[in-house]
Nucleic acid binder design. Structure first.
Length: 577
RNA sequence: GCAGCCAUAGCUCAAUUGGAUAGAGCAUCUGACUACGGAUCAGAAGGUUUGAGGUUCGACUCCUCAUGGCUGCACCA
């Protein structure tokens, strides 16, 4: 059990003995380390409920608090904070325990859930652009973290493979296709077809009708059009897979919109028959008279021309997932602008009897330099593939400059880890709900609070161990026996680092609680920062045993946490850089 | 018009049930370069948390109003 949990337990016991609600007893790391290592505001929270003086409540808690084996005598400060300063021996013991703990202090959830995470979802025949970054990277990171904590996660890429854009694509394919371009860069060619037909339509109303007819033929199962559609999907997937491969992302399922096609008609008919949906102005709608917020916002599931909508597919998808996986939760990782849509779909699903925890994990928009949303049609979108290639190229230039002696293949491998890590981290480090201004410089920066900074901390530690090995000092962290060479905390920077390492066990749960990987980014940055300070202040290899073994073990633990934490963000670490 | 989200340092962003003196990065300035790897570290400077009220022992955080911005609001996805 971690130091924090132990303190929490002790506090709960003291609260109970003092006749106070034990659930108020939250212990947190100190906001300001001058006051101690941990603190609790329980006295102030309790005082409010009991209408008593906070300091008096604190005193009565202290009277029952038994922590002398762990800390110096707790003190009351300010309005009623109780501060804990951990004994060096207790801190050493806690951090030593992690050396034999492969989980690094992370406890699994007690009740694992089955969670379906729906993310990325690009559209066929359109390139993935920076707008897809957040969903893709955020969804992947949440998947990794949820699995790490013991949940069962099913990832599903619900791609847009059945949109109205296919009328244009099919017409273009039949009349304007360049075979060679299609083979070289299929999505670019499909986009060209789409755009060209779009332009032609502008000046030719008759063409518009022909194009619409191509779409109708596709929907009715015309063999030729169906074949063109299939090829467009296959070709698009090939490009998507290349990007997912680069990003290290694997989907369990890739059930696009087209998969649910046959279910839409029967679903609407059934909802009508059950009285959940009704006809209104020629369209089929679900109304929510009991929800004031949605009173005037019906969910449309069939157009007056008989066509189906976004919400129809989403409802069919929920039904399918319910019957196949019986999930505890379904998470939709999509942008904030879709908030109303999901409110409607979730409300409709509840009317259909679905009790699963449906959650829209919204995120802010990526803005252009003008602080306005990057628009799909502007054509100014930065394509994801290009961004990733640029990141890798820039990283390669730096790697080649710093490590001219490394073989080219090694340089390239390292550049991949650094470049892709930088892009992922730049996105994940931000609070997911805030809009952010896209900036090449920021995405591709390798200095400051960036993935390369974290990777560099890891690389330095690995370098120390390589050197130790070559000098015959130690083979690796596992070769330092924890029994005979315990970690001993003496320098303040060691203390800070040890406390930071011990936080790892809690941070992942906090991340998943609010679906906010930026908290993990923040944690890892502070860990790397603590390590760098320690590294400057405390010579490792130049010191003598037992200090040397202690510091090596502390550094080794830091490396383990960095590597594990970064992997949960989908970011890899090189051994040198 | 209605609804949702947002407003924090020059810029980009943090801030753990409402907690102590609001923190980082970038940019600027000053130091550490015969280095356990400088993609680093030490330090300086930078703030009335958009504004006005309210609740509270305590507010960036909760409530009300105002201002400014973004997004959505019946047959696109």
């Amino acid at each position: 059990m971690s130091l924090l949990y132990t303190l929490t337990d002790r506090l709960a016991a003291a609260l109970g003995a003092a006749g106070i609600d034990e659930s108020l007893g939250l212990v947190t790391p100190s906001a300001d380390t001058r006051f101690g290592d941990f603190q609790t505001n329980a006295a102030m929270v309790a005082a409010k409920a009991l209408k008593k003086n906070p300091r008096e409540v604190a005193a009565s808690i202290l009277a029952h608090l038994q922590v002398e084996d762990l800390c110096e005598s707790p003190t009351v400060a300010g309005a009623g904070f109780i501060n804990f300063k951990v004994h060096e021996s207790a801190l050493s013991e806690a951090v030593n325990a992690l050396r034999n703990d492969r989980s690094l202090g992370v406890e699994m959830v007690k009740k694992p859930k089955t969670i379906i995470i729906d993310f990325s979802s690009p559209n066929v025949a359109k390139p993935m652009h920076v707008g897809h970054i957040r969903s893709t990277i955020l969804g992947d990171s949440l998947t990794r973290i949820a699995r790490h904590l013991g949940h069962q996660v099913i990832t599903d890429n619900h791609i847009g493979d059945w949109g109205t854009q296919f009328g244009k694509v099919i017409y273009g394919w039949k009349h304007l296709l360049h075979r060679e371009s299609l083979e070289q860069a299929p999505i670019a060619e499909l986009v060209r077809l789409y755009r060209e037909v779009n332009a032609l339509e502008e000046n030719d109303p008759a063409l518009k009708e022909i194009v619409r007819h191509e779409l109708v033929k596709l929907q009715q199962g015309d063999a030729e059009n169906l074949e063109i559609w299939k090829q467009a999907v296959v070709l698009s997937w090939k490009e998507f897979e290349r990007l997912y491969g680069l990003l290290g992302i694997i989907f369990d399922e890739r059930l696009g919109e087209s998969f649910y096609n046959d279910a839409l008609g029967p679903l609407v008919d059934r909802l009508l028959a059950e009285g959940i949906a009704e006809l209104s102005k020629g369209a089929v709608c679900i109304f929510f008279p009991e929800l004031p917020a949605l009173e005037e916002k019906p969910c449309l599931i069939r157009k007056s021309d008989g066509g189906f909508l976004y919400a129809t597919t989403d409802l069919a998808t929920i039904e399918y997932r319910e019957s196949r996986w019986k999930p505890d939760a379904i998470w939709y990782v999509t942008g904030s602008p879709q908030q109303l849509h999901f409110e409607q779909v979730f409300a409709a699903a509840r009317m259909m009897g679905v009790t699963t925890d449906l959650r829209h994990i919204a995120f802010g928009s990526i803005l252009g330099e003008d602080r306005k949303m990057m628009k799909t049609r502007s054509g100014e979108n930065v394509e994801l593939g290009g961004l990733l290639n640029e990141a890798i190229e820039r990283a390669l230039a730096v790697v080649a400059e710093k490590n001219p002696d490394l073989p080219r293949t090694d340089q390239e491998e390292i550049a991949h880890l650094i470049g892709l890590g930088a892009v992922k981290y730049a996105d994940l480090m931000q609070h997911r709900l805030t809009d952010y201004v896209f900036s090449w410089d920021k995405m591709l920066s390798f200095q400051g609070n960036t993935a390369p900074y974290l990777q560099n901390a890891y690389v330095r530690i690995r370098s120390i161990f390589r050197k130790a090995k070559s000098e015959g000092i130690a083979e690796g962290i596992s070769s330092i026996p924890s029994e005979s060479s315990p970690i001993v905390i003496s320098d303040p920077s060691e203390r800070t680092l040890a406390l930071q390492i011990l936080k790892f066990g809690e941070v992942l749960h906090a991340v998943l609680e609010d679906q906010r990987p930026n908290l993990l980014c923040l944690y890892l940055y502070e860990l790397a920062d603590s390590f760098h300070r320690f590294y400057e202040a405390c010579p490792i290899l130049k010191s003598e045993d037992p200090v040397r073994s202690s510091r090596m073990a502390l550094a080794g633990l830091t490396a383990d946490v960095l590597k594990t934490g970064l992997s949960l963000l989908g970011i890899g670490v090189p051994e040198r850089m």
